[in-house]
């Protein structure tokens, strides 16, 4: 709890360039739950991978779980709908339900608003 305030203080003067550096030290932890190899699952996997590659370079810890293979994990992670992308880190915990066709929500969720807007 002591760490965050100095981070913010450091970030502010450095502005844009410090962004990627900060991310590389704290990788995003993403878990994508899919049910089998359906088009919907593949779409979701593809999009998450793209996202990791383009927006979160090097700082993406992605785990894809097929709940058909590991049904117990579905229960543990309170998965109801598939595909579900769970952002376990950074907090708070967020879930994105769907095949990730609409990425604006996801960008907001990943604090990528500023970066996402110019790229679009």
């Amino acid at each position: 709890m002591k760490l965050p305030p100095p981070k913010v203080a450091r970030r502010a003067p450095r502005s844009k360039p410090t962004g990627p550096a900060g991310r590389s030290t704290e990788p995003h932890r993403l878990r994508l739950f899919v049910a089998g190899a359906t088009t919907r699952s593949l779409q979701a996997i593809l999009r998450v991978r793209q996202l990791c590659a383009t927006e979160l370079p090097g700082g993406c810890d992605l785990e894809v779980v097929d709940i058909y293979q590991q049904p117990a994990l579905a229960r543990e992670n309170q998965i109801v709908a598939t595909p579900t992308l769970v952002i376990a880190f950074p907090p708070p915990l967020r879930r994105f339900v769907g095949n990730l066709t609409n990425l604006t929500g996801l960008f907001t969720g990943l604090d990528l608003v500023k970066k996402a807007k110019p790229t679009h």
Partner: peptide
């Protein structure tokens, strides 16, 4: 916690139920 982002199904529920 939940945000929508496209199509989904309830396969998660099915799997959990089926597993149970």
């Amino acid at each position: 916690e939940v945000q929508a982002s496209g199509d989904y199904d309830l396969e998660g529920l099915f799997v959990r139920l089926g597993y149970a």
